[in-house]
Simulated scan of single mutants.
Amino acid sequence: TVLTQGTGGVSLFALQFAKMCGARVIATSSSDAKIARLKQLGADVTLNYKTTPDWGKKVRELTGRGVDLVVEVGGVGTLNESIRATRIGGTIAFIGVLAGPASSDSRLPLMVMQQQRLQGVTVGSIEDLQALCDGISMHGVKPVIDKVFAFDEVKDAFAHMASGAHFGKIAIAIG
């Protein structure tokens, strides 16, 4: 079972790859409209983290033990709930820092007690990229593109990203 956070490009690719591998996916968003789109992409369970601020606890209740893997894009601002959502011995793949600073006391002691792993994730090796490309090609995975901006609209692209209105990748056309 994999938990993905939000509806940015990384999170949507994580959802697609997890489904490609046969995993059950729990996905979160702050928007009910985006949650409907997550379901269309194959999310098995969805949670609105604005209306369910203790979503980590809810995930643990839904699964009975917690998820095997969290794709953590929020950073320390969402880490406490990710720790709560992760099963004993599970892994949190720490990819982003979108949620800002932690809003409460750290649950790191819980992480230790549950023998969880916090794995920093960055760009992988050339071999990792080739395996990723092979999997994408074999399974026909297509990136979710929210909007393409012209190169001279870069400021608008950043403003669109900052608004949080996007669902998937924001692209900038060159040339």
Rank of each mutant, 00 (worst) to 15 (best):
M113R: 08
I83Y: 00
A93H: 01
A131C: 10
S104N: 10
V121N: 00
V73H: 08
G100P: 01
N80M: 05
R87E: 15
N80Y: 01
G100C: 02
A93F: 00
R87M: 12
I88G: 08
N80F: 00
V73I: 14
L108N: 07
G120N: 05
R87Y: 07
Q116Y: 02
P109E: 09
M111E: 05
M111S: 12
F94P: 00
G96L: 00
L118A: 01
T86W: 01
R117N: 14
G74A: 06
T122E: 11
A93C: 08
P109A: 09
L129K: 09
Q130G: 07
G74R: 08
L129R: 07
Q116H: 01
V121P: 03
R117E: 14
R117C: 11
G89Q: 03
I92D: 00
Q116P: 03
A102H: 05
L110D: 15
E81C: 11
D105V: 09
Q115T: 05
G100W: 01
Q114H: 09
A85G: 05
F94N: 13
S104A: 15
G74L: 01
I92T: 03
Q116F: 02
G77W: 05
T86F: 03
Q114I: 05
S82D: 12
T78K: 08
A85Y: 04
T122A: 11
V97N: 14
